[in-house]
C-alpha cells in the first residue's frame, strides 16, 4: 500500500493529463477541469502545513532565545495578525487585511523588485571582467543590445536600433531555440520517468 498505491496514482494522473490533450470529448475535458480542481484543493490544503512549518521552526528559536529570536517572534505575530484579519474580516478592499497589504506588503515588494537595478549593475560589472572568449561574447552582445535600446545608440549609428533588433531576432533566437528544444526533451524524459515510476526519489521509499 505504501509503495505501490502512490506509483499507480502517479501513473494514472500523468496518463490522464497526457490523454486530455488528445481527447476532445467535452465530457472528458470537463472531467479534466474537475480533476484539476482537486489538485488546487490539495495545494491549498498544503498551506496549513506551511503555516505549521513556520510555527515549528520559529517557535524553537524563540523558546531557546536563539540569536534574533525577537525577529522570529515578530514574524510569527505578523503572520497570525494577517491570518486573523483575513479569515475573520475578509480580504476585500477596505478591510484591515487590505490596509496592511497596501501599506506594508506592497512597498516592500516593490522595493525588493527595484533593488534588482542595483544588483544588475553589480552583475554587469562581473560580466564585463572578461576572462574568456565566451565571457567576451556575452559582454559585447550585452553592451550592443543596451546601446541599441537607448537614444544614444541612434546618435552613434543610425542603424543601431535595427542592428540590435537583428541580434535579438537572429543569433539570440538561434541559441534560445537550442535551449528550448533541449529543455523540451529533458522535460519529456523527466515526465516519463516520473509517470512510469522509474524516478521516485521525491516520494521517499521507506
Amino acid at each position: 500500500m505504501r509503495k505501490e498505491v502512490p506509483l499507480i496514482i502517479t501513473f494514472l494522473a500523468g496518463a490522464f493529463f497526457i490523454a486530455d490533450y488528445f481527447i476532445p470529448h467535452t465530457g472528458f475535458s470537463d472531467l479534466a477541469a474537475k480533476i484539476n480542481g482537486w489538485a488546487i484543493i490539495v495545494l491549498a490544503a498544503s498551506y496549513i502545513l506551511g503555516v505549521l512549518n513556520i510555527l515549528r521552526i520559529n517557535y524553537g528559536r524563540v523558546a531557546k532565545r536563539e540569536k534574533d529570536w525577537i525577529l522570529k517572534l515578530i514574524l510569527v505575530l505578523c503572520m497570525f495578525f494577517m491570518l486573523g484579519a483575513g479569515i475573520f474580516g475578509g480580504i476585500t478592499e477596505g478591510t484591515l487585511f487590505d490596509w496592511f497589504f497596501v501599506n506594508t506588503f506592497t512597498p516592500m515588494q516593490a522595493t525588493m523588485f527595484a533593488l534588482l537595478a542595483f544588483y544588475i549593475a553589480s552583475a554587469a560589472f562581473r560580466a564585463f571582467r572578461v576572462r574568456t572568449v565566451q565571457a567576451a561574447l556575452l559582454a559585447i552582445t550585452a553592451v550592443l543590445v543596451m546601446i541599441g535600446r537607448v537614444p544614444i545608440g541612434e546618435t552613434i549609428w543610425k542603424s543601431f536600433p535595427d542592428f540590435t533588433e537583428w541580434i535579438m531576432n537572429v543569433p539570440q533566437l538561434a541559441g534560445k531555440r537550442a535551449i528550448l528544444i533541449g529543455a523540451a526533451l529533458g522535460a519529456i524524459a523527466t515526465g516519463l520517468k516520473v509517470i512510469t515510476g522509474l524516478e521516485r526519489t521525491y516520494m521517499g521509499q521507506d
Binding site: A142, K176, I179, A183
Partner: peptide
C-alpha cells in the same frame, strides 16, 4: 534552470550553470 531569461544572471554570478536540459539530466 530552464527559464531562459534568468540564465544570463546565473552565468554571470555563479561558478557553474546548468543550462536547460542539463538540469533535467542531473538526476
Amino acid at each position: 534552470t530552464a527559464n531562459i531569461h534568468q540564465l544570463p544572471f546565473f552565468v554571470v554570478a555563479c561558478d557553474y550553470t546548468l543550462i536547460g536540459e542539463e538540469l533535467f539530466a542531473a538526476s
